[in-house]
């Protein structure tokens, strides 16, 4: 790293006045966004759409931001500029797709209407129904994170216990073997019968879906720890607690994270089903409600929000992993 900055210091005087040049692809993308805004303003709608102007405004605003970015690109922080350049092709393709969508729906009405919504109809859902949508997101997150936290914690502890102790393994292994592969949703009728509230029942189902992969992968991580690590620690005076907490668990962490990722994926599926069948709240319920009223724009909007929520959570987990497992080869960031 120091050698790289050294090279820059030497190289800098070579171009005394760096030529000012906007980033071409970003500028092109900005132009396309402006064009998309123009299409939505000047091509007349085939029907009454309330949010066409706002839609055009937002699309134009994206164009303006990109235009500014393309001009400022050489002056932007290095990391940000590199990321912008990386997504530039996507930024150029997106407005084209948007225009296409806009034309076949709002402008020329080429697709069967209730099933295919125009982009400004989705926008209308966000502007007019944000309260209900927002509450659904909050309820979904509350349920998901509660169940996930419980499932991950119980699965982790169970996995360590099974991996560490032969006796615990003897009793827990057959149970896991029998019950684990059962999809968590199969418990749904029973859970709603046993638990006092539909929320606690759904939390249980999410926890169950999370807990199984976390248990199995924590267990296999702990069981797969290089025995030589224990020998080293034992000759240096390590007791049992040290061997578990400072040897087995850190060594198993890469495997634990695989389980956490699988558990998160499984928990999304269970969440939606539980919300549709039981709790009558959250994004799953919103989807079902929208379908009942043939409010397809609301459904697409909810799907979009759900996709963003899921990918956001996965990204958070990736961040946590990169931080905790920075010692792993290839992941090390300086």
């Amino acid at each position: 790293m120091s050698s790289a900055s050294h090279v820059q210091q030497i190289a800098a005087p070579l171009h005394v006045a760096p030529r000012f040049r906007p980033h071409a692809l970003l500028a092109f993308a900005a132009l396309l966004w402006f064009a998309a805004a123009g299409v939505s303003v000047w091509v007349p709608d085939a029907d009454d759409y309330e949010r066409t102007a706002l839609f055009a405004l937002l699309v134009g605003a994206v164009g303006a931001v990109l235009a500014a970015a393309s001009l400022a690109e050489p002056a932007l922080p290095k990391g940000l500029a590199a990321r912008l350049r990386g997504v530039a092709p996507w930024l150029a393709v997106l407005p084209v797709l948007l225009v296409g969508w806009e034309l076949v729906t709002a402008k020329f009405d080429l697709l069967p209407r209730p099933f295919f919504a125009a982009p400004q109809s989705l926008l209308e859902v966000f502007t007019d129904d944000w309260r209900r949508l927002g509450e659904s997101v909050a309820r979904s997150l509350f349920l998901l994170l509660g169940g996930y936290a419980i499932g991950a914690a119980v699965g982790f502890v169970a996995g360590v216990a099974v991996g560490w102790s032969r006796a615990v393994g003897y009793w827990v292994h057959p149970v896991l073997r029998l019950v684990g592969p059962l999809p968590a949703t199969a418990w749904l009728p029973l859970a709603f019968f046993i638990f006092p509230t539909s929320h606690s029942a759904s939390t249980f189902l999410v926890a169950l879906a999370t807990g199984f992969p976390v248990t199995v992968l924590t267990w296999s991580g702990v069981a797969g720890v290089n025995r030589a690590y224990y020998d080293v620690a034992r000759t240096m005076g390590a007791g049992r607690a040290f061997l578990v907490l400072k040897v087995a668990i850190p060594a198993a962490m890469p495997s634990v994270f695989v389980g956490l990722f699988m558990g998160l994926g499984a928990s999304f599926a269970v969440l939606v089903v539980a919300e549709m069948m039981g709790v009558k709240a959250g994004l799953g319920w919103y989807l079902q409600w929208a379908q009942g009223w043939a409010a397809y724009a609301n459904m697409y909007a909810a799907l979009l929000v759900m996709a963003l929520m899921c990918t956001g959570l996965i990204t958070l987990l990736f961040r946590a992993r990169d931080r905790l497992l920075a010692w792993q080869k290839g992941l090390v960031q300086w």
Binding site: A228, V232, A233, G237, G239, P250, A251
Partner: peptide, 25 residues
């Protein structure tokens, strides 16, 4: 104390923390 043919350093610990292992234990 034993030193094995493989260094068997703990990959999640820095060199310092590896060396501190025994004292920590």
């Amino acid at each position: 104390v034993v030193v094995f043919q493989d260094p068997t350093l703990f990959p999640w610990r820095t060199v310092w923390d590896n060396a501190a292992l025994g004292l920590e234990a």
